[in-house]
Nucleic acid binder design. Structure first.
Length: 434
RNA sequence: CGGGGUGUAGCUCAGUAUGGUUAGAGUACCUGGUUUGGGACCAGGGGGCCGAAGGUUCGAGUCCUUUCACCCCGACCA
């Protein structure tokens, strides 16, 4: 893409209401803009990042044997009345009426719809297991949307649902999804932890959360520095509530207790802030029973499906990448999430040799399938560099005054290092880096 | 949903206590010129239903009433 023709409205100042780095930089960098409380438009750069994340999620899920579907976003209220969630979810569900005054809901999640989809279509144990997912818009009418993409009302979430003939098989799938989620977050280049999300009835194994570690995270995690143990402090709070003598224990005291304890593996424990980007949950037959969704077992007897549910906050991940990877100048995208891998910056477009080399490199990289931006605007060096840093291209090739000596520079966004390269070697050097 | 706050140019904000020229600044944008290795400089220019609706007044961005929107702290949640 030529920068001169792109729609990337960057700004020097952030709106006053943006408090978090991801919120500020995504708006300043021209990735997103706000369309109302908890509502966001994705502009070209934001859309590219969103789609990259979505593609990786899809690829890994498909590899794990899941099938993608797409459910209608607008759903009849009756669907929610049958499961009892019309009342249970209350005002969080946005209700709308059509011209006939029939009531509808903008889907906040899709357990009911997915069960209805499978019900009476999958009727035999021979057709199980089955894992269906969608990556689709969700709407939750939050009491207080905030933090930009981290807590919007409208957001993009991948929600998956699996159906099984036995609890054992459901747990097998649950474990498979844990492995798959780890692959996804690793591919995205994120530093994350898996933590037990529920300490209660299911013994802490029935529900796991995936947290991206970032200072601005809303959840506090206790993590081991030696092994991969981690727990959400909420869990500990819940636990303490159940134990009488801990009733008066303050949050700080609780932290001290935890911090002075050792992990089961003997490692030191520490506190980290985390952003919840994934959640996997063993549902059992809660919804299949309520909605009378049965299959016939080996003996021809009807049984409700054993189910599990798996979520990934796709649009939240866009912000999470930045919460974890940024500096005072802007975004630092991981290679897997960068809107463009390489930015070719022409220092002075009045210098014909600079333009010629830039155009040549631009073409070659495009032909090699590299996602590349050509900054061909009539702007000054400093302006373009600030812009490149704000947007966060992993690499910027600076074609400028050193070209007289046959040299160009590669600016590494993450390390902020400038490396001089002979102009004839720039292509191969870039191909080596990415 | 409780408590607090803010709505004036694309963005950041003055102006509102005490009503009174044609509503301002910075930034961004357009034109011309000078610049060209870290968000340049000079000159000129365009841009506003002062959130909305009522009211008080000779006169309202400013006072009164109503309403809408947005933000912050908390409770709640992917």
């Amino acid at each position: 893409m030529r920068r001169s023709r792109a729609f990337i409205p960057t700004t020097k100042e952030a709106p006053s209401d943006a408090t978090l780095p991801s919120h500020q930089f995504l708006i300043r960098g021209g990735f997103i803009n706000s369309q109302g409380a908890g509502l966001y438009n994705f502009m070209p750069l934001g859309k590219i990042v969103l789609d990259k994340i979505r593609a990786i999620v899809k690829e890994e899920l498909d590899k794990a044997g899941c099938s993608e579907v797409q459910l209608s976003f607008v759903t009849p209220i009756g669907l929610w009345e049958r499961s009892g969630r019309a009342d249970a979810m209350g005002k969080e569900m946005l209700r709308i009426a059509d011209r006939h005054q029939n009531e509808f809901v903008l889907s906040p999640t899709n357990e009911e719809a997915m069960v209805e989809l499978v019900k009476n279509r999958v009727t035999s144990y021979k057709d199980l297991p089955l894992n269906l997912y969608q990556i689709n818009t969700k709407f939750r009418d939050e009491a207080r949307p905030r933090y930009g993409l981290l807590r919007g009302r409208e957001f993009l979430m991948k929600d998956g649902y699996s159906f099984h003939s036995s609890t054992e098989d459901m747990i097998r799938e649950f474990n498979l999804m844990e492995v798959t989620y780890k692959k996804i977050f690793t591919r995205l280049g994120l530093n994350f932890r898996v933590v037990a999300a529920d300490s209660g009835a299911i013994g802490g194994e029935g529900s796991k959360e995936f947290h991206v570690l970032a200072d601005s995270g809303e959840d506090t995690l206790v993590v081991c520095q030696s092994c991969d143990y981690g727990a959400n402090i909420e869990t500990i709070d819940e636990l303490s509530n159940k134990i009488e003598e801990f009733k008066e224990t303050s949050y700080e005291e609780l932290q001290n207790i935890a911090i002075n304890s050792k992990c089961a593996c003997g490692g030191e424990l520490s506190f980290k802030k985390g952003i919840e980007v994934g959640h996997i949950f063993q549902l059992g037959d809660k919804y299949s029973k309520a909605l009378e969704a049965n299959f016939n077992d080996e003996n021809g007897k009807p049984k409700p499906f054993e189910m599990a549910t798996f979520g990934i906050g796709v649009s939240r991940l866009v912000a999470s990448v930045i919460e974890q990877n940024h500096d005072e100048n802007g975004c630092i995208w991981t290679k897997a999430t960068a809107p463009y891998m390489v930015n070719i910056m022409i220092s002075n477009i009045k210098e014909t040799p600079q333009v010629a080399l830039a155009e040549e490199l631009y073409l070659k990289l495009q032909e090699a399938g590299v996602s590349v931006m050509l900054d061909d605007r009539k702007e000054r060096f400093g302006f373009k560099m600030k812009d490149a840093e704000l947007i966060g291209f992993p690499y910027t090739v600076i074609i400028g005054k050193e070209l007289e000596n046959g040299q160009v520079q590669i600016f590494d966004r993450k390390s902020k290092e400038n490396t001089s390269v002979n102009k004839d070697e720039i292509y191969s050097k870039i191909m080596e880096l990415i």
